[in-house]
Simulated assay, not measured.
Amino acid sequence: MITGLVVELTKLTHAAVARVTGVLIVLGISLICSAMLLAVDTDDPQLAAKLGPLIDPGGWVGYLTVAIQVTGAAGLIGYGVVLSWLFSREFADGTITGLFAIPLSRRTLATAKLTVYLMWGLVTALALVLALILLGLAGGLGPIPPDAAPAIGRLLGLSILNLVIATPAAWAATVGRSVLAGIGTTLAIVVASQVSVIAGTGGWFPFAAPALWAISTGITVTPAQLALVAPVAALAITLTLRSWHHLQLDR
């Protein structure tokens, strides 16, 4: 297992996909929120209306609320892209045949991929929070008040939940043997989440519940609804490991 972790970690750290996606998640979301923060002092009523939480309640809480809204979709897509690449690159690069000749089982390799992905995702989530805090300070928001601490916690929690709920992309990329299959599944999840929210059933849709929980401060999503994330992720991981265990070269 340790050998598999070292190999997969080496692949990930040298992969442009992981580096670029990490930068887009961390700096992309941070810079978008910071740019909106700079536009707060405006006399344009239409622009003020679009800025939403940055105007009311404003300050750190409004800034972090906007960050949560952006992270809800952008973070999930970013995690899905990296996960899809991790589980499809062997097919794209033609190295899948070599995996049948090494002493490590394919299930162990898949477990190593998931572990490395979670490690990368946690680092990315923490970096995003740090970048938002630094840019918020640079943007003139001043010291972080106590009432902003829950928003920081929800932002970090949302990133971690997105990290977990993106796991169906791994199974899709394995079954489809293509990075597009995984990314397509991730985009379908994002679209379905938006539809469920519009329909008023987002709390019971595990892929939409984390973002709703983070945005609404937990009011519109119950613990039971949020807990549905766990069995969905567990099922996706189980199917992924099973697919790698039964992987064949004749298709």
Rank of each mutant, 00 (worst) to 15 (best):
T71K: 01
P223Y: 02
D93V: 10
A227Y: 08
I189N: 03
A67S: 12
K113E: 07
G22L: 04
T21A: 15
P206D: 06
V221F: 04
L137A: 11
T220V: 15
A181P: 06
T115N: 06
I77T: 10
A110I: 05
S196H: 04
A214H: 00
R242I: 13
L9F: 13
V179F: 11
I102F: 12
I25S: 01
D250Q: 14
T220F: 11
R89T: 13
L130R: 07
E90C: 08
A39E: 12
L12Q: 13
L64F: 06
S105H: 08
I144N: 03
N162V: 02
A110Y: 03
L228H: 02
I102P: 01
R107D: 07
A169Q: 10
I160L: 14
A48G: 13
L226F: 01
I165F: 00
Q46A: 15
P45C: 05
A170W: 04
G4P: 09
R19K: 13
G80L: 08
I237T: 14
Y63S: 08
D147A: 13
L137V: 13
T13E: 10
L126N: 04
G94N: 12
L239T: 11
I189W: 01
E8V: 06
A110C: 08
G203D: 03
V23A: 15
L86N: 06
V81M: 10
S216R: 00
S196V: 02
T124H: 04
A18E: 08
A233P: 10
G22A: 05
L134C: 14
S30H: 00
G157I: 04
W60R: 03
A49Y: 11
L114G: 06
I165Q: 00
E8S: 12
V232Y: 10
A214F: 00
L135V: 06
A48C: 05
W213M: 02
V116S: 08
A209D: 04
H246Y: 15
L37P: 00
Q225M: 08
P143C: 09
L180R: 09
F207K: 02
G157M: 07
W120A: 07
L126R: 07
G59D: 05
V221W: 02
L122I: 13
R89H: 14
V17F: 09
S105L: 08
A224F: 12
I160Q: 01
L118W: 08
S196Y: 00
L9H: 12
F205W: 13
T185V: 14
L163T: 10
T111H: 07
Q46R: 15
S196I: 01
H245T: 13
L155K: 03
H246I: 10
V70Q: 10
D56A: 11
P53E: 05
L114P: 01
A131K: 02
T10G: 15
A73V: 14
G136D: 03
L141G: 01
A170C: 10
V197R: 07
A112F: 01
A209F: 00
V123R: 09
T222H: 07
A138L: 14
T186R: 06
G75Y: 02
D41S: 14
I96H: 10
L161W: 08
V6K: 12
L141E: 06
V123A: 15
T240I: 06
H14G: 11
I29L: 02
H246S: 14
A92L: 15
A151E: 14
G98I: 02
L76F: 13
S30F: 00
G59P: 02
H246L: 15
S193T: 00
T95G: 05
R89M: 08
A112W: 03
R177S: 07
G176W: 09
A15W: 09
L126G: 09
A199H: 04
